[in-house]
Design a protein around this nucleic acid. Structure first.
Lengths: 210, 210
DNA sequence: GATTTTCTGTTGCAAAAACAACAAAATTTT
DNA sequence: AAAATTTTGTTGTTTTTGCAACAGAAAATC
């Protein structure tokens, strides 16, 4: 995502002057935050990869969203009504900025540039999130596992401007992301290979159609 | 959705002074807009009901989103990459405000209150959209038709603060919204009734558990 | 660099969902 | 108020997906 601000510059700025923001580091597999809809937490992922996951009563894990550089997340985007716990888990070492959403609108004591800039960029950041969620809905509403796979591959192909691209997930995680059973997905992948829709070498996928 | 502005007041205002906004009325079943990612259209539904729908190559119709009063929509929220056409169809008579997203940020000649207020409310409006999209993803990632139905019923129950509520859809549309086959959904509804999870009378549903 | 853990690939079988088709009910149009 | 259209409810059959289980490959940990 091409943000119109330089996060590094921000960090230098706020560490000296801003009292409204926390900067935290998380190790791989640590839980960054759980959504409990009390704190109105709003976060920006500065580096690393993380997933918003849900475990349901049947033991299914679902990757609701996948976050990378400059993605935003937090319970402020959720009306938590479900019984299932939602939590954001670090997939690699992560650096995260954590705010309270309310505080974003109030200037901090020092009226730091960090806050000014953030207020300015916020609509754009949130708009990006809407776009990416719409894409997610588009994908999840596909009726078959095959259509979900091809839809996702198309997305990656469009993003990378190439017929060949690398999956940002393990296949296990991909199944949890597309919300399908892993073995069924593997079967479908095999068929897609056999029918010459795709070529697959590890996590490298090549689209062979159109 | 509880907006912090009064749309009626706005309309009076802008009709006299604002040259950046179009106000249009649509009859039932008319196409309000199609997403073609050229015009950066941004719309607010003032009255009526409308759906964002997709028709895929297999003839399946999917209701991607359902809009009612004060909901926002438009191609600006989409990176249209799919082959499938997306269009917003009026379910009843609709009044719609149509902008170009860029124009929202520039003050119009008269610097009308309308634009001022909109700029002010925009982050809140978009945030609402994120929340509702997250709910949608939550629903669509449920693995079974039963869980989707119960998840959706829970949502409506929470919204109306009541165990009894009216479906805002026909059952045909509900199936398209949950992205499942209608007859399979009907079968599941029947089972839910037989197993005393719900009571159903036309579009009125009552939850019998918890 | 050996060991443990996770991931990939596969399969038979069970369960769920989709497809297809139709009649009855309800709604809309004329 | 009659006719046409859409929606609801139902069911048999086919297809797809999920479940369970396991072996080999790869990756992570010690």
């Amino acid at each position: 995502m091409n943000l119109s601000f330089d996060v590094e510059e921000f960090i230098k700025e706020f560490e000296n002057s801003c009292n409204k923001v926390q900067r935290k580091t998380f190790d791989k597999n640590q839980v960054i935050t759980s959504y409990i809809q009390k704190r109105n937490q709003f976060c920006i992922l500065i580096s690393g990869n993380a997933d918003l996951v849900r475990y349901d009563l049947n033991g299914n894990r679902t990757i609701i969203e996948h976050f990378s550089n400059n993605d935003i997340f937090g319970e402020v985007f959720y009306n938590v009504t479900t019984n299932n716990e939602l939590s954001v888990e670090a997939r690699s070492k992560c650096e995260v900025l954590i705010y309270s959403y309310q505080n974003i609108h109030y200037k901090c004591k020092q009226n730091c540039k960090f806050h000014q800039k953030l207020t300015e960029c916020l609509p754009e950041l949130i708009l990006d999130k809407v776009t990416s969620l719409n894409m997610r809905v588009e994908l999840l509403t596909k009726r078959s596992t095959r259509d979900k796979l091809l839809g996702y591959f198309n997305l990656l192909s469009t993003r990378t401007l190439s017929k060949t691209f690398k999956l940002p997930f393990s296949l296990t995680d991909l199944a949890d992301y597309l919300s399908v059973d892993r073995s069924a997905m593997m079967r479908e992948l095999k068929l897609l290979k056999e029918e010459n829709f795709i070529k697959k070498d590890g996590k490298m996928i090549t689209l062979l159609y159109k």
